[in-house]
Nucleic acid binder design. Structure first.
Lengths: 210, 210, 210, 210
DNA sequence: ATTTAAACGAGACGGTACGTCACGTCTTCTG
DNA sequence: CAGAAGACGTGACGTACCGTCTCGTTTAAAT
């Protein structure tokens, strides 16, 4: 396969500049909020030329995306192979994970740029694609792995679709974070896990009834 | 109480112009997508002056919001007092409602401007407030009423938090619509309802275990 | 004739802004010289938006052109109908006019922007056309009128082409101004007039010889 | 004297590259016109690095200058010692020279880059200095030599300032080339020579009158 | 023939200005 | 006086070049 015709030479890329841009993007996303964030502003804050940003990122959202990725990967192990905890107690494990998510989404340093990124993802299909392959799908795989383990251990009903199960557990949190007026709490995370596991229906009318 | 000093006199408002603006907003939101929608574009398409828009709406999102409201209210009864169907079969009722939602969110004529509005809501806290009081809260109330009826009828476990229950049922749909790559389906709606009602856990380890 | 489709409505044009732009252009042309003059700079200095400049002028040179025109028309009579002096003494009249030109081209306030405009005229064919019809041709007509009067009065040889004659008198000055290292002087103006009138050749070998 | 610290070593200069740059400059000046000519464009067209241009030339205009010089010096004798023709017939000689100039300035291959250079000369005082010492002054000297010979031969009036005389003959041509709408012609060259030699005034009122 | 220092191509970088688009405010004219 | 029309100051967009600055890679003079 021949190399891309006009792609920039990544080996010559200035790492200090890249870091400055990502930092600036993150800071500004938090400071001025989801909307007034501008490439011009990022470049100015980073002490970089606009062209340098356009050279390496296709859109404002892509910068933010990389900025958030860099924040997560910061010294930690590779996320691609990471796994959710499995202590044998599914409910406890899920609560732990969801509580950690709540903590992240409650910290404005992380939540504000994350929210900005989410807006960009909704508005930019190309960025959405990137977001799916590089963030969402790995996360879904990780969740599914844990749930499958639970299913094999007999903690999960064998006829449950794991994708739907994951949606049931993580969907409400995501929604409340995006649209809810009040902040996320550990209590809410716990309630979602308990309710999802137990189901809404009366014990006497379950599964077999449907 | 005397009228506000600066608020425009709504009695003089031109209804044809208002309709033209809302229609133009809807059309453009679908045509150019959630991003390139502009007030100038709406005004031009509607044959209206920009000032007319600024006089009556505080933001681009507010126009879109009204446009979608107008679309829903179109001749129908007042949504505030509407109720979800209650045939006595909770699962069937929920599936019906969710399938209807899927149909709406699958039709590009409705889905595209709705998506645009969602982006605006996420980016504009003021609009978010309006959206919550005028759309989300009434809807949540409606959902809660139906669920409470089910609880009272013994179809729902008595210890279930109705708010959490509603999140469990409607959250996954909303999420998949916003972020999922593939379109919503009736099958997915059904799966969500069934799984939420039955719960994820094995029958032998339910509720009492928590 | 129908009006231009998209031409701006000149009646709504802001005269204070127009004046500020022309003044700023003139000042900057003098200050930063023929080259570093930018539309952005003019707009900033004038406290105007760039779009306002682009709305009314097709190019940077056109702004400068108008600025210089405005400077000349400043309260004076209409140039279109003006005439060169005619006291009956052609040599004296020409010297007076050329000396006045020398004075203008020696004053940096006028000379610097004029030089900038000249550069633009050379580089922009469209501007060159405007410059010809609105400045050069009226001037040439004015010069030709005076020379024709001289010819009719018997001061100019009857077989002299008036266009060539005008070139002979005004061309050297223009050239020396543009390219010469030393500044223009009254003495040079006088020498050009005298030499052009008398001719280069020895008296004994004139006209009839050619 | 030790060599300059930072001056490049001319002996190592790549002649093929130099030629490619000059050719590219010439071509582009003709193709994209006096304005859109850029150093980046020249480098790209020449297959050279930008730094190579900046190493050897102080400005875009200097490149163009060298390019035109190289075009003229192409195998011919040294211009510095060249002389205008002197057949004894001043008028005929001048016409011959001016007609040759007209031919050059009419050929777009030469005229277009020359025009571009002229614009640069007007805008860049440093380049103007180079242009004067290396092109204009030698040319003026050449012209003056021929005119002085004529004066000594009695073909030119003894009181004529030779610098002014040269301006009178060559100035109009230069001007018409730069600013005139219609192209230069041999007829115009002839007319200028004849008129300059004979003078504008009636024979009966010449020289002695001033 | 080998070394070695430069010139070279390539192109990333911080900048400046370009010309365009949309913002939200304003003013003027029309129905 | 609401509404159309649209000029205005503002600010961001994405692009083109500027001139400087590394990077390896030739390449030609000095070993």
């Amino acid at each position: 396969m021949p190399p891309q015709r006009k792609s920039p030479d990544a080996t010559r890329r200035s790492q200090p500049t890249r870091a400055a841009i990502l930092t600036a993007a993150l800071e500004l996303a938090g400071e001025v909020g989801y909307a007034r964030l501008s490439i011009e502003g990022i470049a100015a804050r980073a002490g970089a030329g606009k062209q340098t940003i356009y050279r390496w990122w296709p859109s404002k959202g892509a910068v933010l995306f990389d900025a958030l990725l860099a924040l997560s990967d910061d010294g930690s192990a590779d996320d691609a192979t990471a796994d959710l905890p499995n202590t044998g107690d599914l409910a406890a494990d899920l609560k732990m994970v969801l509580r950690a998510t709540v903590d992240e989404l409650t910290d404005p340093r992380l939540s504000d740029p994350m929210r900005a990124l989410t807006v960009e993802v909704l508005a930019d299909p190309e960025l959405a694609q990137t977001w799916r392959t590089r963030l969402d799908e790995p996360m879904r795989a990780m969740k599914t792995r844990r749930l499958r383990a639970a299913q094999e251990a007999g903690d999960l009903a064998p006829d449950v679709d794991l994708a739907v199960a994951a949606d049931l557990v993580w969907g409400p949190l995501q929604n409340k974070w995006l649209f809810g007026p009040e902040p996320l709490t550990h209590a809410y995370a716990d309630a979602v896990v308990d309710t999802a596991l137990a189901g809404l229906a009366q014990a006497s009318r379950r599964r077999s009834d449907t």
